[in-house]
Every structure is written in C-alpha cells, then in structure tokens.
Design a binder for these strands. Structure first.
Lengths: 205, 205
DNA sequence: AAAAGTAGTAGACAGTGTCTACGAAATAGT
DNA sequence: ACTATTTCGTAGACACTGTCTACTACTTTT
C-alpha cells in the first residue's frame, strides 16, 4: 500500500462534497457533480456509498461533529462556574457555526437529502443534542428552572438557536431592513431565556 | 364564459399542488406530477407560471395567509387585555399550523423550491412577520422588555416558534424517546420567554 | 500461479424542468 | 359575419439527474 497522503476515495468524496457546499451552497449538489469535481466517473461514488443520501449523511455527520466543536470552543471562553453564562456561550457557538457554514448546516436538517437512517448521522446528531442537555442539567442544578424535564428544556433552547440560524440563512429575519445583526439577536434571546446579557465573543472561527 | 364553478386552471394548479403537499409531503413534488394530478399535459403549468418555483411561491404565499389565520384564530381565545398571554397564544397558533400542515409549512421556508423574488410571496411573508411585530409592540407598551427593538424581539420569538416547529417536523426533538409533546414544549418556551404558564388551547384546527 | 474480490468506467433507463413548434378555441376588430 | 389575433393546452425534444448493470483492470488471497 501507499505510505502516506493518498486519501481514500471515500474520504475524498466526503471532502469534495463539503467543499462544494462551502463554495456553492447546497442548491446544485448531486452525485454526478461531486464525482466530476473529484475527478471520477459519474458512477464511482456508488462504489463507496449505496446512495447519494448516504454520502450526504456522512457529510452531515461530520457537520454535527464540527458543530459540537464550535460549541466547545465557545465554552472554553465562558466562566465555568456560571452555568447560565455557559448556556449563553453555547448559543453563540451554535449560531456562529451555522453562519460560518451555511451549506453543511442547511444539509444537516434536510431529511430529504440525508439518509436519516444512517447510523453515524443519528449518532452524531444525538451527541450534539446530548452536549446541550448536559449544559442544561448543570444550569438546573444551580437553580435554572429546576422542575423542568431536561430534554424538554434543551429542546426549547435548541429550537431558539436553530430558528435564529435557519431564519437568518433564509433572510427571513428583518425582511424590511434586509440586514440583520445576528449577534444582537442571540444576545436578546439569551436575555429572554437566561436573564443574562452576555456580549458576543470576538474570536474568529 | 361559463357561469360558475369552473376554477381557472391557474387556481386549480395551486389547489392541486396544495393537495399533493397535504397528502404526500413535499418530497416528490414537481411540475409534471402536479400536471398529472390536475389532469393536464406535462407542459401545461408553464402556461400559467413561468417556472416551478413561481407555482410553489404562489402555494407558499397562500400558506402564509393560512398561517396568519391560524394565529388570528388562536388570538380570539386569548385575553385581549393581557399582551403577554396574547403572545403565548400566538405561539400555539404558529406551531399548530405547522404541525397540521407540514407540507406547506416546509415549503414556505424552502428558498430552493420557492421563487423568493415572487412579490406575492414576499408580501405575505412580511405580513405574517408584521402580525407578530404588532403583538410585540403591544406587549412592550405594557412593560415587556420596553427597551428592545420591536423587530429584533419579534425575530427572536419567531425563531423560537419556528425552531420548535421545524425540529419537530424533522423528528429532531427528543431523539431518544422518539415521541414529543409539542404542546408541552410550547408551554415551556412561553414560560421562558414571557414568564406566563398558559395551558394549550383545546380547539381543533 | 490461479482464483477471488475490489474499484473504477461506460452505457442504459426512467425520471425531472424547461423550451419549442403546433393546433384548437375563444376573443377582438372591422 | 368573417377574418385576425391572442390564449391555452398538447407533444416532442434537450440536457440533466440518480441508480442499475455489464465490463475491465488491478489487488489480494490462497
């Protein structure tokens, strides 16, 4: 076998698909287009994925991992002793990932494109949700709506972040002005939900 | 011309598309399929809409009108003197529309399917947002976050409802249990945002 | 060295959206 | 009333898609 540097075709296909999403969005994505960009014949991807949906599910699973990383990265900047501040920081991490990676983020929730029965896809999606549930449990232990069901509370918070990110990407927020200050909306959402007014972090990535 | 009852082909196409969405969801929707179900040849719809996206934008615009109606309907049951309760009622109206009409609701926010430059689509979408802004302004006048920008506040609340509805339709909420009590989540979201614990209304539709 | 399996190619098939030429039917103009 | 013209639906074509099936090299195993 080759010693180094030859990415397996399978991982190269995933990377190519991801590049396409970052460059063009998810509008014109397809099996033949990915194969073309990877320098392969149109049928080659089906040797590694049973269907287009399976390929995209693998890309989306990677997206869920990156999403968790983005949230983790936002958390290291937050006060570890203030659970509500940590939830607020996670919100920034979530929304910023969506804003920085609109293609993959859009793909991750398109069940008509991703094969949602893919086990890796399901695993990573649940892991991302579990990350949020853990934060919620910590916050509840310190007095934040201690009576609520953790998964329900996490679902509501996830929904707020997800709604902000989705509507922002669809330009559905502020239909009059056209320009949206996403950070300001997250800050307001955090104020509503947690009662804390945490300014947006300033790091890049 | 015929005296009555002959729906113009244009409106019949819209109705046919809507029927399809209600019956099959938006997965296999297409120009030829709609034409087939309307009993027309595959090219006929293009005599009335320049493109598939234009037809779907018309369907989505109708969906936005129905959404506003659903919110209005929820509002008549709410105490007209309690603006926060009214916001909570609007949340139920929004989410219940989405749950009852998953096809059209999904379509309304799919900019790759709808021609978002369609003027009717833009008008109805803004009108639905404006409906929420009005409620927010009333609530602010009675002391609910009076310092916030109304459109931003409305954006955050819209996002929460929208996120709940979207994630619910994608089965992304409660990935462990599989079954979600959507009303309970809306009630919890209202508690977080408005501090009111309004039980879900019980009427059908 | 022969056999078996892997991975890529190329062609076909049914399906899509959109374009074009064509025909029929209703309408408008004189 | 008889053209002329516009309206509306049909049918065929074109380029494209995802998936399936042979076929062909190249590896790996035995």
């Amino acid at each position: 076998m080759t010693v180094v540097a030859t990415l397996s075709t399978r991982t190269r296909l995933i990377a190519t698909a991801r590049d396409y999403l970052d460059a063009e969005g998810l509008d014109g994505i397809g099996l033949r287009e990915i194969a073309r960009r990877a320098g392969l014949s149109h049928g080659a991807p089906l040797r590694h994925f049973p269907t287009l949906g399976a390929l995209l599910a693998a890309v989306a699973a990677e997206g869920f991992r990156d999403l968790q990383r983005s949230v983790d990265h936002a958390l290291v900047l937050a006060d570890p002793t203030a659970p509500r501040e940590r939830l607020a920081a996670a919100a920034y991490g979530y929304v910023r990932f969506a804003a920085a990676n609109p293609g993959v983020f859009g793909l991750m929730f398109r069940s008509d494109l991703c094969d949602t029965s893919d086990s890796e896809y399901a695993t990573e999606g649940s892991a991302a949700f579990g990350q949020l549930v853990d934060l919620v449990v910590d916050a509840q232990a310190s007095g934040f709506h201690p009576g609520a069901v953790p998964a329900e509370l996490a679902g509501v918070l996830w929904s707020t972040m997800h709604g902000l990110a989705s509507l922002h990407l669809h330009d559905a927020l502020a239909p009059t002005t056209g320009q949206t200050d996403l950070d300001a909306l997250v800050r307001l959402a955090n104020l509503l939900a947690f009662g804390v007014s945490t300014p947006p972090p300033e790091e890049l990535s």
